[in-house]
């Protein structure tokens, strides 16, 4: 039994076939697997390892290296606040503090309802539009606390 949806399974197979060596598909596969499952549980690791003919250890080595990949669940909306220099100079740390206050959780924690989690992240390439954050893959830029509240509220309503 696969832990992935048939579409994802299918995508994985196409992905592995599209490189000169199937292992090249590993990082994208892990990211897409995480997109679907929210994190990378042991069964997902085992399945991907088997798909590529790699060891689970080899897959875990890779997961540990990349900061976007995780082996434990995060919130449905993973709020990633950049505090690197360009954001810091424009209030990125205040935005982080504001998010923590609003959601009642600290960095790397998840709200009890599993809706939000917060992570302080390194530069996300929004320097000229700082301060910025990403919720999952969505960029939100030129933030101030009020705008953050609006954004969080929108996600909360979305459920």
């Amino acid at each position: 039994m696969s832990v992935f949806s048939p579409a994802t399974r299918d995508r994985f197979e196409r992905l592995a076939a599209s490189y000169p060596q199937p292992r090249s598909a590993l990082v994208p596969m892990l990211l897409y697997a995480q997109d679907e499952l929210g994190y990378l549980p042991p069964e997902a690791i085992a399945e991907i390892a088997a798909l590529l003919g790699e060891t689970e250890l080899g897959v875990r080595e890779v997961i540990g290296y990349y900061s976007m990949l995780r082996t434990a669940p995060a919130g449905r909306y993973h709020v990633q606040v950049c505090t690197n220099i360009s954001c810091m100079l424009r209030g990125g740390e205040e935005i982080l503090a504001h998010c923590q206050r609003r959601l009642g959780i600290h960095n790397r924690q998840t709200t009890p309802d599993g809706m939000f989690s917060i992570e302080e992240v390194e530069c996300i390439g929004a320097c000229a539009w700082a301060p910025a954050l990403q919720v999952n893959y969505d960029f939100h830029q030129e933030l101030d606390p009020a705008k953050v509240d609006e954004i969080l509220e929108k996600y909360r309503r979305q459920g």
């Binding site: 292992r23 090249s24 590993l26 990082v27 290296y65 990349y66």
Partner: peptide, 26 residues
Amino acid sequence: LAHTGAGAYECGEESALMESLEGKRG
């Protein structure tokens, strides 16, 4: 082919990028 990384500044370094593109640690 467009390929996605997964969070690692070091993978911008040319040889680390190649390792990463081969499905390894960067």
